[in-house]
Amino acid sequence: MNEQSLRELIAEIFRLAYTRRLVDLLGGNASARLSGDEVLITPTSTPKVIIKPQNIVKIRLDGTVVSGGKPSSEWRMHVAIYRVRDDVRFVLHTHPPNILALTRAGLKIDMSLSEAISYVGEVIDVPFLRPGSNELAEAVSRALSRKNVTAVILRNHGLVTVGVTPYEAFNRAEVLEDLAYITLMSSCHGK
């Protein structure tokens, strides 16, 4: 896939994520790995619902900006994931409310449901670490260094999903948010 197509897909995925209430207007971020050591990533402090392909920032794995404005404050986490996972081509970081509510309640997503088995893989939780920090980047990349892990819940913060395609990463976030809702509703009714 060429760079322009990836830019368009990042913008499209963010419109979908906003519509699906996985992110708020300014929250969340996404990236796609280009060949070599370059990554496309959403800019910081930009309303994601109106993001355009030309707004996407290009950086190197060391964080150097190649083109565009200022990258997401979570750029360290994105590049750390790409360093440990050659198979990952797309990273999506969302703030899904049901997942956040579930973790605040001290509950875990019921991963026995068929959607989890079919689409997600293993999910690992990491404790709250300051957003944008090297510590968060290290904790998430360490969790994702295992090939069967496709999602990381960031306690009191959000969710990171990865995939070969943007749609795979998005679907994992969407499925996990739905499963969190089902788990919450089941818990409220004593099931």
Rank of each mutant, 00 (worst) to 15 (best):
T103F: 06
S141I: 09
T64F: 00
P53K: 06
L159C: 08
A101R: 09
T46A: 14
L100F: 07
T165G: 14
S45K: 14
G163T: 03
I50Y: 03
P47R: 15
P96K: 10
D110R: 13
G36H: 05
I56G: 15
T44E: 08
I41C: 10
L92N: 01
L61I: 02
V126P: 08
V162N: 07
D24L: 14
K108L: 14
V91L: 03
V57L: 07
V160H: 12
F128N: 11
S112N: 15
N156W: 05
N55W: 07
M77Q: 06
L22S: 07
A101I: 10
V88W: 02
D37M: 01
G106E: 04
P97W: 04
T42P: 12
S72D: 04
F128P: 07
L25E: 13
W75R: 01
L154C: 12
K147L: 06
V88H: 03
A143S: 15
D87W: 05
T42R: 06
L102F: 10
A101D: 06
G27Y: 03
V49L: 15
P131Q: 00
L129I: 03
Y18A: 02
V149T: 12
R85I: 09
Y18E: 00
H93W: 03
K58W: 01
S133H: 08
G163E: 11
S45D: 13
P131D: 00
A105Q: 14
F90N: 13
I59E: 00
T161G: 12
Y18D: 02
G158M: 04
V91F: 06
L144N: 08
R146L: 08
L136D: 11
L154P: 04
L136R: 04
N148Y: 12
G36R: 04
A116F: 06
G132R: 09
Y18C: 02
P131F: 01
V66G: 02
V79F: 04
L154T: 10
L22A: 07
I50P: 00
D86Y: 07
R155V: 13
A151R: 03
S141W: 11
L102E: 09
A137H: 11
H95C: 10
L40D: 01
N134Y: 09
L136A: 12
S73P: 02
G132T: 06
I99M: 14
V152G: 14
V160Q: 10
I124F: 07
R155T: 15
V152T: 11
T150E: 11
F128K: 11
R60C: 04
N29Y: 05
S35C: 06
P53Y: 08
I56D: 12
H95E: 15
N98Q: 09
P127W: 05
V120H: 03
R21D: 05
K147I: 10
S114A: 15
R76S: 02
G69R: 09
A101F: 02
S141A: 15
E38I: 00
T165R: 14
A80Y: 07
R146V: 05
R33Q: 05
V66A: 01
T44W: 04
A105I: 10
A30K: 03
P43G: 09
L144F: 09
P47K: 13
M111S: 13
L100T: 13
I124E: 13
A116W: 01
S72P: 10
H78C: 05
V66C: 01
I56N: 13
I81N: 11
S112Q: 13
P166R: 04
G28K: 01
S133Y: 08
R76N: 02
Y82M: 01
